[in-house]
């Protein structure tokens, strides 16, 4: 039985390793290309796709988390579940608390790209320099979404406003009026991505002391299916 509109996030095990390697790989692909000229970006994008969760199924006495269109699977025995919660609806619940490595991957991307932007000047490539700004902003907002609880969500609004102002003023100062249109598109895109992420609900499963995270557009239904499965295990 498949849980509708529910997918696992790459927060532990092989999916997490693939996610962290591919995401950081994409940001250093330009430099790797200078050492060994192979299509690094394509390779890292494929790895990123492989790390993404595609479905959650209840099969017999297990919950099966499926990643990369069925290539990777994690089986969680139903009778070993210690906790089941709607993490996004807990007043002080944050993803960072349970999934430090996943959240810190986003922070590492921000720090590396800041270094690339400020010190290395994106290897002299103006398009990449601009892309750096966009990815820094998006990754920072993602990191904050993972570390701010429902109770303190107001902070995020102010960070979005502050970073949007920066996304307009910095390119305008550097490159003039022609930079404003792409800046507008980037701000819109970053806000939409983060908003979509924030609007998703997250189901937390703790099995034998290990935590797993599912993103769900129908969390109540997902929770009910898991409840039924535990009852019949």
């Amino acid at each position: 039985m498949r849980l509708s509109r529910t997918a696992p996030l790459p927060v532990r095990g092989i999916p997490l390793v693939l996610f962290a390697v591919s995401l950081s790989g994409i940001t250093v692909a330009t430099y790797l290309d200078r050492i060994i000229p192979i299509p690094w970006e394509t390779a890292f994008v494929l790895l990123l796709i492989l790390s993404q969760g595609s479905a959650v199924e209840v099969r017999g006495d297990n919950i099966v988390l499926i990643y990369g269109f069925g290539i990777l699977k994690q089986r969680l025995p139903l009778d070993s579940i210690n906790e089941l919660s709607l993490l996004s609806r807990l007043e002080y619940g944050t993803i960072l608390r349970h999934f430090k490595a996943y959240a810190l991957t986003w922070l590492a991307i921000v720090l590396w790209l800041l270094f690339d932007f400020l010190a290395l000047k994106a290897a002299g490539n103006p398009i990449r320099l601009y892309m750096d700004l966009f990815i820094i902003m998006t990754s920072l907002l993602f990191f904050l979404s993972l570390s701010v609880s429902r109770k303190h969500r107001e902070i995020l609004k102010w960070v979005v406003i502050a970073s949007s102002i920066f996304m307009f003023t910095y390119p305008y100062q550097e490159w003039g009026l022609r930079a404003l249109f792409p800046a507008f598109i980037f701000v819109l895109l970053a806000t939409l991505i983060v908003r979509a992420f924030q609007n998703s609900d997250f189901i937390l499963l703790i099995v034998r002391g290990n935590s797993y995270l599912l993103s769900s557009e129908k969390p109540e239904e997902g929770l009910k299916r898991i409840q039924e499965a535990i009852r019949h295990a």
Binding site: I81, N82, E83, L84, S85, L86, R89, L90, I206, E220, L223, Q227, I230, R231
Partner: peptide, 19 residues
Amino acid sequence: FEAFFGLSEVFSWEIIRVN
């Protein structure tokens, strides 16, 4: 789990966390 699920069903509570 069964006890908490049963209780929430009887009183129509919406479950947020069960440990």
